[in-house]
């Protein structure tokens, strides 16, 4: 099977259309199961009481906010290096969903911080670098929107996205490098998790749900972008 066939907008458009319902369905099923575990199976936290149940959306949204940025910068970089149109369109399609995930992470974090820390916001390294991530998404989107010629917008956006990627490890390691009010990671690849198994299950299932949702939303958006950019080509006219 020749996967490069799908690097053309014309062949990817119907393929993406077929994939969207599956990713949406997966997101819905995982979210229902994850919320069931999160609210009805996972016990009350002995320190935080019920307020900790916010982490079932906070942590997945924060993970996705960083992950989507890396994927966006990857596709933008591929588009810049190899001049492939679809990769650049994919980067453009990912940005709004990434910004949404970043906002959700900040919003839910604020609502968790108020009862737990006694403050809605603090300028510590983790919160500040996550806010910078939101501004990087906004910067990428407004830069692209400001340039009329799509291929020039792709290139300018790619440079911004690639430079901004240094912020992702800063967010991730901020809790180790600096003395932050934000706690260190409870889940990491190198250590066993420091939380109850059912809490961890709920969080991981919700992370998968957010992941599947982000793919679905980006695929719908990339389909719209493909049509917008290719509207003068023959295959779009025969749709």
């Amino acid at each position: 099977m020749n996967w490069f066939r799908y690097s053309s907008p014309q062949t990817f458009y119907p393929l993406a259309g077929k994939m969207v319902p599956w990713f949406l369905a997966a997101a819905a099923v995982l979210a229902v199961y994850g919320l069931y575990v999160g609210f009805f199976v996972a016990p009350t936290d002995f320190q935080q009481g019920e307020s900790y149940r916010i982490i079932f959306i906070h942590v997945p949204a924060a993970w996705m906010s960083m992950f989507i940025y890396v994927v966006m910068a990857f596709w933008a970089g591929i588009g810049l290096a190899f001049n492939t149109r679809l990769s650049s369109m994919m980067a453009t399609a990912l940005a709004p969903t990434g910004a949404l995930m970043t906002f959700i992470a900040l919003w839910t974090g604020s609502l968790w911080g108020r009862p737990t820390w006694g403050t809605w916001w603090v300028w510590d390294a983790r919160l500040t670098s996550e806010l910078i991530l939101l501004f990087l998404y906004f910067g990428f989107m407004s830069l692209q929107a400001a340039i009329d010629e799509p291929r020039r917008a792709d290139k300018a956006g790619a440079v911004l996205a690639l430079v901004g990627v240094v912020n992702v490890p800063i967010i991730y390691f901020s809790v180790q490098w600096w003395n932050t009010l934000h706690q260190g990671a409870s889940v990491s690849l190198t250590k066993s998790p420091t939380m109850a198994a059912t809490m961890l299950t709920g969080m991981l299932v919700m992370a998968l749900a957010f992941w599947m949702y982000s793919i679905a939303a980006s695929l719908i958006r990339v389909r719209a972008i493909i049509l917008e950019r290719e509207r003068n080509s023959d295959w779009v006219k025969t749709l």
């Binding site: 009350t44 009481g49 019920e50 307020s51 149940r53 916010i54 959306i57 906070h58 949204a61 949404l100 906002f103 959700i104 919003w107 839910t108 609502l111 968790w112 108020r114 009862p115 949702y213």
Partner: peptide
């Protein structure tokens, strides 16, 4: 939510509305 209703449901409501 053990007295944290506004915080928990405020988080979930905004997330669901935005998505």
């Amino acid at each position: 939510m053990g007295g944290y209703g506004w915080y928990v449901w405020g988080s979930y409501a905004v997330t669901i509305v935005l998505i």
